[in-house]
């Protein structure tokens, strides 16, 4: 019984972490219809910026996290404004463009910090013990931040003027412009937020796991899983799917064996695509 609870808690924490990883990716697709292949690279950049500020300059971790968010958001802002915006209507072109950014970001980290994994100074340590269940504090931090970030993105999209404008622009760009909205102001901001979320995730998660130029691939895969399962562009779908992925991974890892978990997940996704190509909560976005 205790094992089941521990596994469930483990799955939920993992799911929360995955939701945070997928959040920015899902936002970029939901609003800009851009599949951001640079999402993993931005996660890595966020991790390294936090590492640089915390481990090499020696400032408190909080500053490292803030610097990571600002740096990645700035990259996202400029990249959307000057590059993606020119090809915003061509979905395949935006994939290739973000792939280019991903290569450049990876190359920059490789050049600056080398190919070896770096050791983060211990930032959040210790483990919470509740009954027979153990949760590391670092994970709790991730869960709390994930909850806040999801709530913030939700409020931004559905309760603010900017969110309404962004959704209007997604729906009918030309009409939204005729209402006085400026996509060249709003879309770079939206992409900056999406990129900043990737940087935030990197700064929070890499100290708990590992930080090397190539760890972003895993994040990208998790994001793909979440949005395919949840339905492209559906924010609630991505969150639910992330938690589901976390739970499946946790239970399969405990009861079946480690490497089976991803295989079952990925194969499950291929099967899901046959039965329901729009994902769990998706609408008619298959041809988008």
């Amino acid at each position: 019984m205790n094992e089941i609870i521990q596994t469930t808690v483990g799955g939920l924490t993992l799911g929360a972490q995955y939701a945070l990883m997928a959040l920015g990716f899902s936002l970029a697709f939901g609003i800009l219809r851009v599949i951001n292949f640079a999402h993993g690279a931005l996660y890595v950049v966020g991790g390294y910026v936090a590492y640089f500020v915390t481990g090499q300059i020696g400032l408190p971790y909080v500053f490292g996290v803030m610097a990571a968010v600002l740096a990645t958001a700035a990259i996202g802002y400029l990249f959307e404004l000057f590059i993606i915006e020119r090809r915003i209507d061509d979905h395949l072109a935006t994939i290739v463009l973000t792939l280019g950014l991903s290569l450049i970001g990876g190359a920059a980290m490789l050049g600056l910090f080398g190919p070896q994994a770096v050791r983060f100074p211990p930032v959040v340590s210790g483990t919470l013990q509740l009954g027979g269940v153990y949760i590391p504090y670092g994970r709790i931090l991730v869960i709390v931040v994930a909850a806040f970030a999801i709530a913030a993105v939700y409020l931004l999209l559905y309760k603010t003027q900017m969110g309404g404008a962004l959704r209007a622009l997604t729906d009918d760009r030309e009409m939204a412009i005729a209402m006085g909205m400026r996509p060249k102001v709003l879309f770079p901001l939206a992409f900056a937020i999406a990129a900043g979320l990737a940087g935030l995730t990197g700064a929070l998660v890499t100290p708990q796991f590992s930080l090397a130029p190539f760890v972003g691939e895993h994040v990208l895969m998790i994001s793909f899983l979440a949005v395919i399962l949840g339905g492209l562009g559906s924010l609630p779908g991505a969150v639910i799917a992330s938690v589901l992925v976390g739970l499946v991974e946790s239970f399969v890892g405990v009861y079946v064996g480690g490497s089976w978990a991803p295989l079952i997940l990925f194969t499950g996704i291929l099967v899901l695509l046959v039965i329901r190509p729009t994902g769990i909560l998706g609408h008619r976005t298959v041809n988008a």
């Binding site: 003027q161 309404g164 404008a165 959704r167 209007a168 997604t170 729906d171 009918d172 009409m175 939204a176 005729a178 209402m179 006085g180 909205m181």
Partner: peptide, 26 residues
Amino acid sequence: IRISPEGRRVFANLTIEANMLAGGYT
């Protein structure tokens, strides 16, 4: 200047209220 365009072109995925909010964006 505001337009109600040919074919209406409401923001289909937005609620009526959100459509109006978007209209008063400025």
